[in-house]
Computed example of a mutant assay.
Amino acid sequence: MAERKVVSGEVELWSEDFGDPRDPALLLIMGANASGVTWPEEFISLLVAGGHRVIRYDHRDTGRSTYRDFTRYPYSVTDLARDAVSVLDGHGVQRAHVVGLSMGGTLGQVLALDHRERLLTLTVMLTAALGVDFVGNMERASKGQPTLDGLPTPDPRVLAVLARRSEPVRDRASELDRRVAEWRALSGDKLPFDASEFRRYEERVIDHAGSLVQPSAHALATPVPLVRGAELRGITTPTLVIQGGQDPLNPPPHGLHLAQSIPGARLVELPNMGHALPSAIHQPLADAILEHTHRFA
C-alpha cells in the first residue's frame, strides 16, 4: 500500500494503491462528497486477491485532496471525470478496469465516452444513466412528484435523512451517530444493519480527512448535460451494471435502463444490496466485478 499525491490541473488529489504493481490496474471511483477511504479496505483486499492492483483516491474537495472555495473555483462533474484520468496518469497506468459507485458510476460513463482508450472494462453500480435527471428527480421526490421519464425517484424518507447533513456539527460522537443513521437509511431493509461496522468506517473517514465536517461541494458541480445520455449507445468498453435491489436512491429498474442503454452491457442485480457497502455484500460484489474483469483480461 503506497500513498501519493497526483496533480490534476490546479488541484492535488490524494491517492493510494494496493497489491502487485505488475497486476492489471483497477481504479475505484467513489460517489459524491465521499473520499476514497469510503471504499472499505476489507472489500479492496478481495479485489487484490483476485489479481488486481487497486487504486483509490479522494475527489477534489474531499479527504486529503485540495479544497477550494467553489464560488471562486467552480467545476463540473465532467471535470471530476478528468481528475480520474489524472489519477491514472499519476500512477503510470495507461489502461485500467474502472469501477464507479453512485456519482462514481456517472464519472465512469463519462470516461467510457470521452476517454475510452484508458479503460479496459467499466463497472458501474448503484447509479443512473447519464440521460436520467437525477438532480431533478431528487427535487421531485421531495415534493411527491413523479419523474419525467417513468423511472422511480429516490425514496423521500431517505432524502429527509440526508438533509440532516446541513445541521451544524456539534462533536465527534453526535456526528458519528448522524452518519451511522444515514447509512442505516441507505442500506435498505433486507440485510441486518451492523451499526458498529459503519461507525468504524466513518471513524476512518473522519481521521483520514482530519475534520468532522462532511464535504458538500459536489452538489454545486455542473451536472453532465442530459443530452449526453443519447451517446451511451456509442460506448464500446465492456460494461457491467450492478443494481442494488434495495437501493433507495437509484432503485430498480434504473440499472436495467442503464444496461439497456449501452450496447452489450450486462446487468447483475444483488437483491439485498442498498446504497452502501456492508461487509455482508463484499464477497458477492467482488465476485461479480472479478468475473467481469477476468472475462476481458
Rank of each mutant, 00 (worst) to 15 (best):
residue 26 L to W: 03
residue 16 E to N: 07
residue 35 S to F: 02
residue 162 L to N: 12
residue 12 E to L: 13
residue 277 L to W: 11
residue 142 S to I: 09
residue 25 A to P: 00
residue 12 E to G: 03
residue 259 A to L: 04
residue 61 D to N: 02
residue 172 R to G: 00
residue 64 R to V: 04
residue 50 G to E: 02
residue 292 H to E: 07
residue 132 V to T: 15
residue 177 D to R: 08
residue 94 Q to S: 15
residue 148 L to I: 10
residue 69 D to E: 10
residue 135 V to L: 15
residue 181 A to Y: 00
residue 92 G to E: 03
residue 258 L to H: 14
residue 15 S to W: 00
residue 46 L to W: 13
residue 226 L to D: 13
residue 175 E to I: 11
residue 152 P to W: 04
residue 193 F to W: 06
residue 32 A to R: 02
residue 119 L to P: 12
residue 221 A to L: 02
residue 7 V to F: 13
residue 98 V to M: 01
residue 239 T to C: 09
residue 55 I to E: 00
residue 164 R to K: 14
residue 242 I to A: 01
residue 170 R to E: 15
residue 181 A to P: 00
residue 68 R to D: 04
residue 24 P to R: 00
residue 94 Q to D: 14
residue 294 H to S: 13
residue 120 L to K: 09
residue 11 V to I: 12
residue 271 P to K: 07
residue 183 W to A: 07
residue 96 A to V: 03
residue 57 Y to D: 02
residue 28 L to G: 02
residue 61 D to P: 07
residue 53 R to E: 01
residue 175 E to H: 15
residue 282 H to L: 10
residue 216 S to Y: 10
residue 168 P to G: 03
residue 140 R to C: 14
residue 292 H to S: 15
residue 116 R to I: 14
residue 144 G to W: 06
residue 4 R to I: 02
residue 168 P to T: 09
residue 275 H to A: 08
residue 95 R to T: 07
residue 171 D to P: 06
residue 136 G to M: 15
residue 140 R to G: 09
residue 222 T to M: 05
residue 171 D to W: 03
residue 183 W to K: 14
residue 183 W to S: 10
residue 102 S to C: 05
residue 10 E to T: 06
residue 127 T to W: 04
residue 132 V to M: 13
residue 109 Q to S: 11
residue 224 V to Y: 06
residue 53 R to I: 06
residue 213 V to L: 12
residue 134 F to T: 09
residue 239 T to F: 08
residue 165 R to Y: 10
residue 124 V to Q: 09
residue 197 E to V: 09
residue 7 V to L: 15
residue 275 H to N: 04
residue 91 H to K: 08
residue 242 I to Q: 00
residue 66 T to W: 01
residue 132 V to G: 03
residue 110 V to Y: 07
residue 37 V to T: 09
residue 23 D to C: 05
residue 239 T to M: 03
residue 228 R to K: 09
residue 255 G to M: 09
residue 206 I to F: 08
residue 70 F to G: 06
residue 85 V to L: 11
residue 100 G to W: 05
residue 70 F to A: 08
residue 32 A to G: 11
residue 36 G to C: 13
residue 75 Y to F: 11
residue 69 D to M: 14
residue 215 P to Q: 03
residue 112 A to L: 00
residue 272 N to A: 13
residue 205 V to S: 10
residue 7 V to G: 07
residue 207 D to E: 09
residue 217 A to W: 01
residue 177 D to L: 11
residue 77 V to Q: 06
residue 148 L to V: 02
residue 147 T to P: 05
residue 265 A to Y: 06
residue 219 A to C: 08
residue 115 H to L: 08
residue 9 G to R: 12
residue 46 L to S: 12
residue 282 H to C: 04
residue 28 L to W: 06
residue 166 S to L: 09
residue 5 K to G: 13
residue 80 L to M: 10
residue 197 E to H: 03
residue 78 T to D: 15
residue 245 G to Q: 04
residue 141 A to V: 15
residue 216 S to K: 15
residue 148 L to T: 15
residue 63 G to M: 03
residue 177 D to I: 05
residue 252 P to K: 14
residue 53 R to C: 05
residue 242 I to K: 00
residue 27 L to P: 01
residue 80 L to C: 06
residue 248 P to V: 01
residue 281 I to N: 13
residue 18 F to Y: 12
residue 189 D to H: 03
residue 46 L to V: 08
residue 231 E to A: 11
residue 7 V to A: 07
residue 13 L to D: 00
